[in-house]
Simulated assay, not measured.
Amino acid sequence: MFRIGFTSPSGPPDVSGLAAQMDKLDKLGLDSVELPFYWLDLLAGAKRRPLACRRLLEACRNRPYGFSTHLPLSINFGDASERLPLHFDVFRASLDLAAEAGAVHAVIHTAIFRPATGVSVADGHARQRDYLARCGDEARARQMVVCVENLFLWSDLTATASMGELAGELAAVNHPQVRATFDVSHGYIHATQLGANFLEEAAALAPFADHVHMHDSFGRPDRDEYYYSESERLAFGAGDLHLTVGRGSIPWADLAKKCRFPRQALFNIELNDRYFADEAPECVDAVRSVMTKAQSTP
């Protein structure tokens, strides 16, 4: 049976407002809330900051839902080889805290490649496979699952895996504790950048997606565009807007018909904080509608 989650609004980085942010989610009928570790000042040099971590754990107590976590966005197993041990240390420290908070899924981004590192895509993916296997072993020891999220191109990135390529990487790792986070909007934008068939690529990744990030966009890259403000990006429908599902142009009905998701997949809403107050209940209803049409693997 599919489940529904919602990423907690961010609040202050010192974690002092997390409990109040999570209070807003208590009445939405959720199965899970995603904790935004990437925004919170939880670690310093891969070591815990005690007060911040205590606030996090206290905020998680006695909630009517479970938890997933999005670990730091900068964890990148496609980085230069000499930096990979630090990425792994940050991953492991974050995973420890996520487990203590009661999370089941821990989201990390798939490898990204920049010219300055001198890392080839083939070599970087090979090293990532090795590290993902190690991540899976760490997750198994904590009764968790690592979910690797697909991205798109921005800034100075030269490459990152397409949805289909990420599916191939996960199949090669072949670890039961290493699965996918299928970010639908990221895939939609990346398919535009690559000139790929969005639905075909999505169908390749969906069977690995124990975890799905749900938000909308128009699939329009903004890698080389200028916009004065976030409001103007929204007006042009450019970039990864994290809109309420149904307010962009992602073909949700076709996606639900084309893809097969794991039976216990968690559909987690990543709504931009700008729209939370006005649109959170609407987005929950829209995602529930998609979930009723979505199909599962045998």
Rank of each mutant, 00 (worst) to 15 (best):
W252H: 03
S10Q: 00
A277V: 05
A111T: 05
S231E: 12
R127K: 14
S74D: 03
G45S: 13
P64R: 15
Y65A: 09
S249R: 05
L40Q: 08
P72H: 04
V107G: 09
L25G: 04
Y38F: 07
Y131E: 10
E58W: 03
A209F: 08
G187Y: 14
G195V: 09
W39D: 11
L199C: 14
N268Y: 14
D26P: 08
L255S: 03
G124L: 08
R140W: 02
F152D: 00
D183S: 07
V119L: 12
G248L: 09
F152V: 08
D89R: 14
Y188M: 09
Q143M: 04
F267P: 02
S81W: 12
Y228I: 09
A20M: 06
S8K: 10
V146D: 02
R114V: 15
P50Y: 12
R260G: 03
V148D: 01
H87A: 01
D137K: 10
Y275W: 10
A44K: 12
R127A: 15
E34W: 07
S296T: 15
V184N: 01
L71M: 05
A167N: 00
M22A: 03
E100D: 10
L271E: 04
R223D: 08
R83T: 13
Y228C: 11
A99C: 10
F236V: 07
F91C: 14
D26F: 14
L166H: 05
H70W: 05
A294E: 13
L153A: 09
F37Q: 02
D26K: 15
L71C: 00
P262G: 13
A209T: 09
W154M: 11
L241F: 04
A159Y: 15
V178K: 00
R233E: 08
A171E: 13
A280T: 06
A44H: 09
Q295W: 05
G248A: 01
L153V: 14
R140L: 11
S120D: 15
A44C: 08
L71G: 01
L151W: 10
R247G: 00
A161M: 04
T69F: 12
R55I: 01
K257R: 15
I269V: 03
P262T: 13
D254T: 12
G5V: 12
T192N: 13
T69E: 06
Y188H: 06
H125Q: 13
E100F: 09
R260C: 11
L153T: 05
N150V: 05
H186R: 11
Y188I: 08
S162V: 11
G102Q: 06
G248S: 03
A265I: 14
A52R: 01
L266M: 10
Q21F: 11
G237I: 03
G102V: 04
A286L: 13
G239D: 12
L30S: 02
S185V: 07
A141Y: 07
A286N: 10
V107S: 02
H242N: 01
E232V: 12
I112K: 07
L199M: 06
V145H: 04
V148C: 10
V184I: 14
H87D: 08
D156I: 10
D89F: 09
Y226I: 14
D183P: 02
D285Q: 01
S74Y: 04
F2C: 01
T110S: 11
L25H: 06
P262A: 14
F88E: 04
P221R: 03
H87Y: 15
G102Y: 14
G248Y: 04
L84Y: 02
Y228D: 13
